[in-house]
Design a binder for these strands. Sequence first.
DNA 1: ACCTTTATAGCACGGCCGTGCTACATTCTT
DNA 2: AAGAATGTAGCACGGCCGTGCTATAAAGGT
Lengths: 207, 207
Amino acid sequence: MDPGERRQAVVEAVFRVVEREGLEQASLRNVAAEAGLAIGSVRHYFDTHAELMVFAMTEMRDRMVSRLMVHVERLLDPAAAWTPGGRREAVADLLAEVLPLDEARRREAVVWLAFVTAARTRPELRPQADSLYDGLLTLATRLLEGARRDGRLRPGADVALEARRLCALLDGLTLEAVLHPARLDAPTLLATLRAHLATLTTPGGSP
Amino acid sequence: MDPGERRQAVVEAVFRVVEREGLEQASLRNVAAEAGLAIGSVRHYFDTHAELMVFAMTEMRDRMVSRLMVHVERLLDPAAAWTPGGRREAVADLLAEVLPLDEARRREAVVWLAFVTAARTRPELRPQADSLYDGLLTLATRLLEGARRDGRLRPGADVALEARRLCALLDGLTLEAVLHPARLDAPTLLATLRAHLATLTTPGGSP
DNA sequence: ACCTTTATAGCACGGCCGTGCTACATTCTT
DNA sequence: AAGAATGTAGCACGGCCGTGCTATAAAGGT
């Protein structure tokens, strides 16, 4: 098996353990068992436990980023002829991609929350945690700047402040959906995001 | 020393360890050392480690609730003659109490985040976690209903949806302030909350 | 005075942890 | 075919963990 694939398989095992039992249970032993490998085999690909955790968190971040990039590139495509309403929809779809709207994204959000909270007391994870927050903040800022350029942004809005407010809403919704899935289902999440975006933009229809 | 005080002192030690090194380091040994006690002494007051954690989380919740209750009772005081603008301010102050605006509240928020995320995989902590979320949600709902009664709420607003949106913003701001204190200082937190409240209410001045 | 209850302290066991190290098998290179 | 490199597996050590249990001291009630 390709070394890269093995590492991916181990990381998948990490994600499953974290989702099922929490990050503190993601020991080398538990991860190896979950991956169907011996503990020594895992250590052949990752020298230390910390290295495995950093790699897993980086992988989680990369997957989130690349998922968002698909939407971003669609928005930046110069060949696409966007109507104002279409752009509005595309931005909403992009931001909805951050929310745990299906089981796959919910699992990713669980892992995200576990790692970023762990990063508070684990220096080796801090760079990834900061990168995740900074990435979301600059994405929100860019989107709002674009909206302002196109006249879709509500006049008088402070872009920097609104970007932070949007990030807080997304992070808060994700946190609550992860911790209280029975109280925040997918339609509710989406409706909340759309209501927020409606207050940010000029009153404009969908067309 | 009074048994109640001893338990409080141990809980304080738990909070300090959690803040400094994370919940996973809050072992009986570490907590006892932090409290200046022998491990057996701690166990005299708390039979098991799980019992100590549940008690500490309950204590954290009770403190948050009682801090908010001061503001709530002030709002409900029938003897107080409220101007619309005064109510607006009082509600903003109440909600600001949730945010980690000073060192004391930041420490409490760190502990909050540690416990509610841990509750996802620890059944014995779930009741407290759910109670915290439900409490905040019903508080937000009541406040918005009150605002609607007084005509301070923006017409056409969906109270249930706006309550959820407000909770998400508060939780998101708290999460981000805990994880990225350098990027979200107290004035920024306050400005974000006030901007959100401004979009929720009718355009009304401070008087 | 005595005795029961409460408080404080610590030992010892089994269990899980990360990791240094070695052993064996497989694959690749030459 | 021989040897090097790589993958897989597991043992063993020291460390921290929760907890059952015992020992000693202090307090309180009678």
